[in-house]
Design a protein around this nucleic acid. Structure first.
Lengths: 209, 209
DNA sequence: TAGATTGTTAATCGATTAACAATC
DNA sequence: TAGATTGTTAATCGATTAACAATC
């Protein structure tokens, strides 16, 4: 399915690294300098063995008897995840959701900068959103390759999402955060992550009386 | 950890049912009446064996040689997930994100109605959001039990999220959709789902060159 | 040194897949 | 009937956990 580049680290391990990183940020903010797999595990509801095993895929970042230097481990995890630099991101869809995403400060705070916005509505094209001109969807084919953009967010209706994904991929995008409530068919070299809050709600009702 | 009520169905199976349901909705919209585990699997990138095994936890919903009647399977999955009725949902946090959530039509379309909104800012309390008065966070303790609300969304800053979760749980909430970028500590009878788009972005950069 | 915690190996656990009899 | 597809069992695969020597 997916190629796991370096030495075939399980995707499920990669998926936990951002969670660890977020917990480390928080510990650092709270003034901690050192932590342990046990403390992290408590905080996250994960076994300490799993944390040690996950981290050991990438090297020995701790010291026996002491634990992990938080700043050092953060730096190493940022390196592994390639988030020790900024990423340019394209946003497709300038409706309510797209507008909310463009205004959300959390992306650029953590290194993801939305630097171009596309929509197919004649009314919106040419207007400005968060300092960027809304471009036609047809401009994806030229703007994205010329700027070397590799990441995009899709915030268009479900019926247009596959078509938009195809255009993004043809233009060189290799990672898509998809807010449309639909599964995308993409070639194996493209990563997709899905955000559909209703799916999360439906997953919880099962357990309610 | 979590109690899986009926007959201890794995949580990972429950997590796939909403995905199946979404795909079935789509097939029905497109005019299909019947589908098969193979067709669903193609659509979702999941093996047909897994789909059959998942569904078989809840009964035999298909017919050999034919497949599944889409409308019937949808109905059955809605029953299993308890989404064949409407759910009242409390929203905590009326900032940019909370406002976007209150205005998002996708929740009520699929049976989740945000019917009360809480915020701790004096400016916002008493104002209206999407037809509902914004109440003080202190009102959680009375409003939520009196209406029997069991689900909530948290859209407050990370530093307030645990405190808000504690109040919601004390008031009877048993399922939380948490948009704050922090892990919540909750008792085992409470379900939490997390939405942090940056986590999804960081999970993809690993695979980019 | 004594205590603590890592990194790693082996054992366990659970999830996915393959295969096929049943049957529509 | 012949073809197709389910539901289920057994086999495989992979992930988690337990345990402990190494060592700070």
């Amino acid at each position: 399915m997916h190629s796991n580049p370096p030495n075939d680290i399980p995707d499920i391990v990669i998926g936990r690294l951002p969670i660890y990183l977020r917990a480390l940020n928080r510990l650092a903010q709270d003034g901690h300098e050192v932590t342990s797999s046990h403390e992290l595990g408590q905080l996250l509801g994960i076994s300490s063995a799993q944390i040690r095993k996950d981290l050991s895929h990438f090297g020995g970042f701790g010291k026996q008897g002491t634990g992990y230097q938080i700043a050092y481990l953060e730096e190493k995890l940022r390196q592994v995840l390639k988030v020790n630099r900024e990423w340019e991101v394209a946003l497709v869809g300038a409706g309510d959701l797209g507008t909310a995403l463009a205004h959300y400060g959390g992306f650029s705070e953590r290194g993801f900068n939305i630097t171009c916005v596309f929509d197919n509505s004649a009314e919106k094209i040419g207007r400005s959103l968060n300092g960027f001109h809304i471009q036609s969807i047809d401009d994806i084919a030229t703007t994205i390759p010329s700027r070397g953009i590799k990441m995009a967010m899709i915030a268009v209706p479900a019926k247009n999402a596959q078509e938009v994904a195809d255009k993004l991929i043809a233009a060189g995008v290799r990672a898509i955060l998809n807010y449309a409530p639909i599964n995308l068919n993409v070639p194996p070299e493209v990563r997709v992550q899905y955000i559909d809050p209703v799916i999360h709600m439906q997953r919880m009702t099962y357990y309610l009386p």
